[in-house]
Amino acid sequence: MSFIKKSPWIIHYDGTSCNGCDIETLACLTPLYDVERLGVVNTGNPKHADILLVTGSVNEQSAPVLWQIYNQMANPKVVVAIGICALSGGVFKECYNVKGGVDTVLPVDVYVPGCAARPEAIIDGVAKACEILQQKLDHEREKKRTRKAVKNNG
């Protein structure tokens, strides 16, 4: 975990989840798993968050809400899809009101499988998301440096 240079703040949204993955996500924050000791804080404000956790598949009504949350988050940001429903639709794939996985609406970086996804798997997913977040941050810094260098030389 030494690659993590900042405390990742998360925001959680329930697409059309059955609650199973939601309560497991919440369970990560409570004493047995306690991710807060690693600096992970669950926030309700999209502008404070680095990582968006989405449980459940997406339907017509929740897709625009997800978009709104995603667009409000500051760059760089990472999306983690939790549970089989968020990955592909799962058992509800053939339901008339299910569009499919979260990646039909948002660019997803980390996929956490399971029905319901276990807290260990979710924590692993968030750790992977931290890695990607760092890469995105490095990439952005590199871009900025190049732009500055070009400007100075030109």
Partner: peptide
């Protein structure tokens, strides 16, 4: 409401 509607009652037919 309607944010979590999946329509799983209809799934009995499949």
């Amino acid at each position: 409401i309607g944010f979590v509607h999946r329509g799983l009652e209809k799934l009995v037919e499949k």
